[in-house]
Design a protein around this nucleic acid. Sequence first.
DNA 1: TATTGTTATACTCTATAACTATA
DNA 2: TATAGTTATAGAGTATAACAATA
Lengths: 133, 133
Amino acid sequence: MAAQEISSLTMLLFEAVGAFRHRFAEVAAELGLTPLQARAILELEEPMPMRDLAGLLGCDASNVTGLADRLEDLSAIERVPGTDRRYKLLSLTPDGQRFRGELHQRVTEGSLLSERLTRAERRQLGVLLKKLV
Amino acid sequence: MAAQEISSLTMLLFEAVGAFRHRFAEVAAELGLTPLQARAILELEEPMPMRDLAGLLGCDASNVTGLADRLEDLSAIERVPGTDRRYKLLSLTPDGQRFRGELHQRVTEGSLLSERLTRAERRQLGVLLKKLV
DNA sequence: TATTGTTATACTCTATAACTATA
DNA sequence: TATAGTTATAGAGTATAACAATA
């Protein structure tokens, strides 16, 4: 039945992401980062307003203040003024870029995505997930 | 490049699950449950040892003690002895079954999984996620 | 010895509400 | 008025370590 199907699939999604969450937390910890800090660094390919980062992280904007503070303490980012003076853009420093490169590499190494899925399946998964965000 | 692909897909997975997390938290709150309590109730289709539930929830077994305590306070579950006296099985009560039915229904209503994906795509997503857990 | 569950604890993540500054 | 960011706070989730009971 359909109802069962949807909620079972929702549970399955939660279970699946759990495995990634653990591995990701390990990788982040190896670099002295919390998982959320690591996610932020990976999302900051380009400088972006704090509010946009909150959107990508799926958390309230108020939480990004402290997150950005700690990333500044780590010399990973800096706040740069936007054209509109209300905005502060978060921009990776050279140290932040190095964090980002390390994260990319370590997240990739031994990922379930490469161990359990073929390239075609990963592409398929990407298409499906993009429809959901 | 492959490295980029894997970590981008990982980030996408985190972003996608975020939308579900918010909706799920709302539904749980409507019933006076925390998201984790709601997940536990949905996982407990059959009675299972506390440790097994920890596995499904992706958290340390130590956290299930307090979780089970609160679900007992809500009359949603009871601890029943297993054959091996070390085990305690968590079993839904009639109240717990009602919670479970409500959760199934509300999680399904207006789910992104039905709004954004076709039936075939949901089946596809299910196959891919099962390979990852 | 090994495994299940419990307790205590500390840290991380998260939302809400009230605030300031800018538009 | 509306929006971006900040601050303070409380609640939820999480792992670690040490422990008792059972196998």
